[in-house]
């Protein structure tokens, strides 16, 4: 089984950096690492295992912490690296040095979850408008959308 070989290789190559590794379905591997080991893990995955394609980065608000998932893929497997960062210090390193195509996903994370991506080449907002009030991050669970009252010019007061 291809997944098993990959898991063995991961255990060999990363050793104690692995916090958890799971294979819930064929061709799906979830690997959990600490945020400090993230860059090393990704460079191992890219350079030694040939996972060059980053599908996307998902961010999940878990309450006391944020979970960030990097979904990689190659021709045989979808490999997800997950890491957790605390809510009071939401910062993680940028992986654009390794994967240049990650820039849009990292900017999206900054906009939507208010994460602080360090060393990001282009920190401008991507999705939200320039006059979006600071400190509002739509994908956090505690953010609620309130629709502003509709005002029709010249309409009934």
């Amino acid at each position: 089984m291809n997944d098993q070989i990959l898991i063995e290789k991961a255990k060999e190559g990363l050793k104690e950096k692995i916090l958890n590794i799971a294979n819930p379905a064929p061709r799906r591997i979830f690997l959990k690492v600490a945020v400090d080991n993230l860059l090393e893990t990704i460079s191992w995955l890219k350079n030694e295992q040939g996972f060059t394609h980053l599908s996307t980065i998902s961010g999940v608000d878990l309450g006391p912490s944020f979970e960030i998932l990097y979904h990689f893929a190659n021709n045989f497997c979808s490999f997800t690296i997950r890491t957790e960062i605390p809510r009071d210090n939401p910062s993680l390193p940028s992986i654009c040095q390794l994967i240049p195509g990650a820039i849009l996903y990292e900017r999206e994370l900054q906009d939507m979850l208010g994460l602080n991506v360090q060393n990001i080449p282009d920190p401008r907002p991507l999705l939200l408008p320039d006059d979006w009030p600071a400190g509002n991050y739509p994908l956090r669970k505690d953010w609620k959308f309130e629709r502003p009252a509709e005002v029709i010019p010249g309409g009934k007061k």
Binding site: S55, T56, V60, G101
Partner: peptide, 30 residues
Amino acid sequence: GENIHYIKSNGTEKPERLKVRAPTLGNYAA
């Protein structure tokens, strides 16, 4: 191109998180 959804459930009737990456977004950088 590749469309990827990351779905996380928490045992209720509603999803905990549903991440959608449409293929076009993946192609913008290129």
